[in-house]
Simulated assay, not measured.
Amino acid sequence: MRRRDGYGSLLAAIFVFAFPLLTASGPAHALDLLSEGTPAKVTVRQIDQFQIGRSETKFGSLTYLGGLELISPDRNVGGLSGLISLEDGRQILAVTDNGIWFSADIEQAPDGKPLELSNARYADMLDQKGRALRKGNGSDTEALAIDGNTVLVSAERVNTVYRFPWPLKTGKERLVGELALSPEIHTLRGTKGLESIAVAPPGSPIAGTLVAIAERGKTGHDNLPGFLIGKGKVERFAVVRSDRYDATDAAFLPDGTLLLLERRFNLRDLVGMRIRRFAADSLRPGAELKGAVLMEADYGNQIDNMEGLDIHRDAQGRTILTLISDNNRSILQRTLLLRFMLDDK
């Protein structure tokens, strides 16, 4: 989500970080993504400690593996809002909040710690006529989900879900259509609208269903609207809003458990990030979900405007969470890529 509320200014007053600068280099890319896209110069700073000034790595049932700050002079690399983790975490595909694809390869240690970033590329999302999506009204793109041979992209303001062919081999693939959604979704609040999407995995009680969650309800006191989209219908549920958090992304564990990434920023709380867990059998029409807090972090941790979340299994069978932040293309904010291991027990 694009923010214009002084977020960056306050962060600048809170945080002063210094990390060694590394030149991005790494392995050859795994999937052939955005091959005709524009190469991007990106350097990284490693983030070895998640809790500032402390070496603790255990945070609830999550273990911090490591992180990177992505630094680029190219504004088209900023504003990363949605994320897909690919090839056992060795590659990412992201989307900016103004209609641009971004991909990169990640060199990682055997334990999954990200070390370097290479082969960074970006490309305009194209509409059905081949025009750049960011030149129109529907370019506030926020979240990604792969559904078979399609990659789904949610867009705020217009509150819709785009369909593009998958994989994005060249970056010049055109929009193939939009999902049929209910009027209730299309009339969600503009920049507080369709922020999070995830496709339920096989074996889940709602396998194949697209779960969509709005950033916020009609007011700051209302629950977050949620939708189950599939089998020709759209059904409603709600996520209980608490502690002034807004939804920013969602992803499923292999067993159908849903993880929801939330972010807050205000003068009372400053900056915060939270991940909630919702049991697979709780995702049903009419449900009002509270869930359980998996992790919470604040200005004492290495976070920013956290907006993207994805989950993958690594070669060792471990469950790995990758998170990314939206720097709003501001020199006062950072693009962070953070990685955690989930204790499946």
Rank of each mutant, 00 (worst) to 15 (best):
S118W: 01
R54Q: 13
Q108S: 13
L65W: 09
Y64T: 04
G138Q: 12
R90V: 00
G53E: 10
V95F: 08
F102Q: 05
L83Y: 07
R134W: 11
I52Q: 14
L70T: 06
N98Q: 12
P110A: 13
G99N: 07
F59A: 03
G99W: 10
L80P: 02
E87T: 11
L86H: 05
E87R: 08
S61P: 10
A109K: 07
V151M: 11
G82I: 10
V158C: 08
V151K: 07
N76W: 13
E56Q: 15
L62I: 02
G82M: 06
S154W: 01
L62G: 02
R134H: 11
A155F: 02
S81M: 03
L117Q: 04
G148S: 06
S55D: 12
N98H: 15
G53Y: 10
L133R: 11
Y64E: 05
L126F: 11
R131A: 14
V158T: 15
E116C: 01
R131M: 08
L93S: 03
I52M: 13
Y122K: 07
F102G: 03
P110E: 14
A145S: 13
A145M: 03
I84N: 10
G78L: 00
D97S: 08
E87G: 08
A143W: 02
D105M: 01
G99C: 02
G66L: 05
A123S: 14
A123V: 10
L144P: 02
I106S: 06
P73L: 01
G138C: 09
S103E: 12
T96F: 00
Q128K: 15
S118F: 01
F50A: 04
D147G: 04
L115N: 08
L152R: 12
L62Q: 04
